[in-house]
């Protein structure tokens, strides 16, 4: 009996084989995720159905769906502006990102240098928004050019274009890397074949390249959109009152400043739903999972 158990321990492979070990390996991560992610998220979902700050009142929480009615009524423009900003930034990323990715993959040999410089947006939207403020400021980098066009710096500063621009810079690497990954899987020989068959560059683009990198383009757009719906610093520092209605900033105002927990939590839930659904779709479009 004893010998048999030793044998099975050997033949059971070289991994610690009991189920207990799997649990032990994953437990810390699971605990952390449950305590600091899933419980808090469920918490705000529950809270989104309570009125104002009644969640902790001695009389018990007042359950209501007013918050959701408010959000789709009074605060509908906030949701729309959030989607509009994210959508516009995504379009800017796509327009500039596709040629960028194409040139990067097909023509550029100093790719690692480009990658290194492209980490700058990763340091955070705060620095981008802050830096752009300096750029657009009267007396900033762009002032001479703006004056030439007859525009005052301050006018451009608070508004849609600068907000969208800063958001686009922040998510540009996502777009480039998604499209770039699809393009590097595309054999250049197919483009040569199309050219030799008489296709003009735009025909090659429309009939060969675009259909074959479509999933990369879609994934890139969804990822950019998913990140940008949560934009906070850009609308706040660069936007006018209109742009500052974006959900992330409003939920901070309502929740932390005005202590309207119910409404703030509702905005959080809506924002979360937006981001999750978009990112879920993007994962469906990008290639396979990490572990199978």
């Amino acid at each position: 009996m004893h010998g048999l158990r030793r044998l099975s321990a050997l033949s059971g492979g070289l991994l610690p084989s009991s189920r207990l070990w799997i649990v032990a390996f994953l437990l810390p991560a699971a605990l952390m995720a449950v305590l600091f992610l899933y419980y808090p998220l469920i918490f705000i979902v529950r809270m989104s159905f309570t009125e104002k700050d009644t969640f902790l009142s001695p009389g018990g929480p007042l359950y209501t769906i007013t918050n959701y009615l408010d959000l789709t009524g009074r605060y509908a423009p906030n949701i729309l502006v959030t989607i509009k900003l994210a959508g516009l930034a995504t379009l800017v990323d796509l327009a500039f990102g596709f040629p960028f990715a194409y040139i990067l993959i097909r023509k550029v040999r100093y790719r690692d240098l480009v990658r290194a410089i492209m980490v700058f947006p990763m340091f955070g939207a705060l620095y981008i928004a802050f830096g752009m403020r300096f750029v657009l400021l009267p007396g900033g980098f762009l002032t001479p050019i703006l004056q030439l066009l007859g525009v005052e710096g301050a006018q451009v500063l608070y508004g849609l274009p600068s907000t969208v621009f800063a958001m686009a810079i922040f998510t540009f690497p996502f777009m480039v890397m998604n499209i770039g990954a699809a393009l590097s899987n595309l054999d250049p020989m197919l483009e040569e074949a199309a050219t030799c068959l008489g296709a003009r560059p735009w025909q090659t683009l429309a009939r060969v390249i675009l259909p074959l990198v479509r999933s990369g383009v879609i994934a890139g757009c969804l990822v950019c959109f998913g990140w940008n719906v949560g934009a906070f610093a850009e609308p706040l520092l660069l936007g006018s009152l209109e742009e500052q209605r974006s959900l992330a900033w409003t939920l901070y105002q309502r929740g932390v400043v005005q202590l309207d927990y119910g409404l703030s939590a509702t905005m959080g839930v809506v924002l979360l739903a937006l981001a999750f659904s978009v990112n879920y779709l993007s994962l469906r479009y990008s290639r396979g999972g990490l572990v199978e």
Binding site: E192, A193, T195, C196, L197, G198, A199, R200
Partner: peptide, 9 residues
Amino acid sequence: SSNARNIGF
């Protein structure tokens, strides 16, 4: 350019 040469590659 290649697309104007009418070749079969």
